[in-house]
Computed example of a mutant assay.
Amino acid sequence: MANRPSFGTRRRGELFDSLLTLFLAEGFAHLTLDDIAARLRCSKGTLYTLAGSKEQLVHAVAVHFFRRATDDVEQEVARAGDARSRITAYLAAVGAALEVASDRFMTDLDAFAPARAVYEQNTSIAARRVSELIAEGVASHEFRDVHAAFAADLAAVMMVRIQQGIVRSTTGLDDAAAYRELAAILTSGIDA
């Protein structure tokens, strides 16, 4: 029984999941704490047990979103076989994680510096992970002898452009589609 989460821990997780579902669908900038409490059918006091202000709550939900997304992405990578499949699985899973986010959520995320910083940090982590996956593929001779750091930097530049909305504005691709295209181009270009 010691390994089971307490009711309070479970309830916190449920609240964060509900907040995330609400924010992903509708964004968050226009919502007040009263709106959020009414939508989640809880009290503002309950929300204050999660964070001390709306801004802190939004930040905590952004962290929750990216933690959950990272877990989902790594599960997909673990199921993949060769290096190409792992990179494709990684970038496709990142795209899938972002696919559930409405345009309004992405706009609000970009406009709110603490949440944008969480996205930027996760983009940086993702770029390092792509670098590791490329290096593994080069070491196993699945990819030609590319400079793994350069290939990863190339991916990182595109990941930042995706995160900043530049790819969306110049190509019309949403973040999820852009990650799928990046996976296709990256893995085809480094095949052995």
Rank of each mutant, 00 (worst) to 15 (best):
R84L: 06
A115D: 03
V58T: 12
E55K: 10
F112M: 10
I87T: 05
T107L: 08
E76F: 04
S53E: 09
D108G: 09
R68A: 13
T88F: 01
A78W: 06
S102H: 00
A83F: 01
A93Q: 01
F112R: 13
V94K: 00
G95N: 07
S102Y: 03
Q75N: 07
E76G: 10
V58Y: 10
R68P: 04
L98W: 01
E76Q: 09
A60W: 07
V118C: 03
L50Y: 04
A69F: 00
D72S: 13
G81A: 09
M106P: 12
F66T: 15
A92K: 13
Q75R: 15
V73Q: 03
D82W: 07
M106Y: 02
S53N: 05
A78K: 07
S53I: 11
A101R: 00
T88I: 06
A62L: 06
S53V: 10
D103S: 12
Y48W: 04
T107V: 10
A62S: 15
A113K: 14
A111Y: 02
A78Y: 00
D82A: 14
S53M: 11
A80K: 00
R104C: 02
L50G: 03
A80R: 03
V63R: 08
A117C: 10
D103R: 09
A111N: 10
V94R: 04
V58P: 10
A89F: 05
A113I: 05
D108W: 03
D71M: 06
A101T: 03
D110Q: 14
A115M: 09
E99I: 01
V73H: 08
M106Q: 15
E76I: 03
A69V: 10
A97E: 00
F66C: 15
L57Y: 14
Y48S: 06
I87D: 06
S102G: 07
A92Q: 13
Y90N: 05
R79C: 02
A89D: 08
F105S: 07
D108P: 13
A113P: 15
R104F: 04
A60V: 00
E99D: 10
D110L: 13
E55F: 04
A113F: 09
L109P: 05
